[in-house]
Design a protein around this nucleic acid. Structure first.
Lengths: 217, 217
DNA sequence: TGTACATCAGTGAACGCGCGTTCACTGATGTAC
DNA sequence: TGTACATCAGTGAACGCGCGTTCACTGATGTAC
């Protein structure tokens, strides 16, 4: 098999596409970004990739399998982006934690198709091998960051890092869903989502005795 | 027009349904609860209501208009439920605020169709008169509660009630979306969503100097 | 109280559409020898 | 280096399906007189 001879944007091709699997994933990303997970069909993806409607079945069992592939790659990208944000903002853990939040919102804004496939596509992780694990790896970045923060606290005041991570994840996801996603039903907000999240995270960390050196929201 | 002669569950009827609009709304609720907003069609709703596929067009312009009606009623119910939770848990504002959070999650769990129509249906509020206002009224319950809490704080430490409300809304919505909704992609959680939310709200309020009398999470 | 009439909710048949899925096939590719 | 062959990615035609939407219609209801 030759994965490199023809890129997905190549104009002319012979009987064999050469890289149909990749082309279908890219088509799915474009369609989901434009119309949401529901506005995506195998037939349309095939059309975008320039093949007959039967061709995708050589690579994906059904539409869910293709969306699951998009979600899988989304989780991988998400983990990378979060890790990079954390690393780039170290060593101060509070600063790095805030950077994590901003990276979360940036991902939701800039990768709407990945975000939708990951969180809005109603795909059961257990039906698609690797999906659960990829999601767990992304969440682990948050959990590890929370553990790093918690480590600065005295033992008796230290909350479970898992719980901290879940709080920040939920807050970030809520803000992203309500105010960031480019969705017809997106709500208006009297401030930037980033500012809202940062203020929330700062207050949360303050309650734990962290973020004391930073300005109060 | 006669709104009471025949309930939606009535077996036999004549040429006129008598209460088709209501029957269609109930059918939409049942279908959205079962399959999500995307798994709902006008034709299927008509079938459930026992009328021909053309009949719904006498009452709703298209599927979005019907879903918007469901969302509208959802916001009204939501506002009622939140108000009741607040009132029943007064006078202590911190206790009442926590009750608000539990009511939020309970609504997401018990009224999946309303919740989906309100938050997941990709309906633009501006396209459906009254929808924006109904959503605003529901949010106002949260904002008023936050204002009541903020009133206990000294002026110089008092955060904007709007911001507090947005934080709690986002946290609640994030937890509901990720861990409560009965969705194929719902995440597992090592504790109850209610406990997670309560701990988060308590920590948040602690950072403001509220919730001091309550046990720390 | 009865009757004529306007109104309009619901009918049912029809249409075009795009989708998912299948199938025997075709032709390009790679490999064994 | 050449050839025969196996493999398998993609074809294209076909199918049944359910949907959205329209249309002239029908018959129930309410009301004016």
């Amino acid at each position: 098999m030759n994965w490199t001879r023809q890129g997905p944007g190549t104009e002319r091709r012979g009987y064999h596409h050469g890289n149909l699997r990749e082309a279908l994933v890219e088509a799915a990303i474009a369609l989901i970004a434009a119309n949401g997970p529901a506005g995506f069909t195998i037939a349309e993806a095939a059309r975008l990739a320039g093949v007959s409607p039967a061709a995708p079945y050589r690579h994906f069992r059904d539409a869910d399998a293709l969306i699951a592939e998009v979600a899988l790659r989304g989780y991988e990208r998400f983990a990378e982006v979060l890790t990079k944000a954390w690393n780039d903002a170290r060593p101060d853990p509070v600063t790095a934690f805030e950077a994590l939040g901003r990276a979360y919102l940036a991902f939701a804004r800039e990768q709407p198709a990945f975000y939708a496939a990951m969180f809005e596509a109603r795909i059961a992780a257990e039906d698609h091998p690797g999906l659960q694990a990829a999601g767990d790896r992304a969440f682990a970045v948050l959990r590890d960051a929370a553990a790093r923060l918690a480590a600065d606290l005295p033992r008796e005041k230290r909350p479970p890092a898992m719980m901290m991570a879940l709080h920040i994840w939920s807050l970030s996801h809520g803000i992203a869903s309500l105010f960031v996603r480019n969705d017809p039903s997106r709500r208006k907000l009297p401030m930037s989502p980033e500012d809202l999240l940062e203020a929330g995270v700062l207050l949360y960390l303050q309650s734990l005795g962290l973020a004391g050196a930073k300005k109060s929201a």
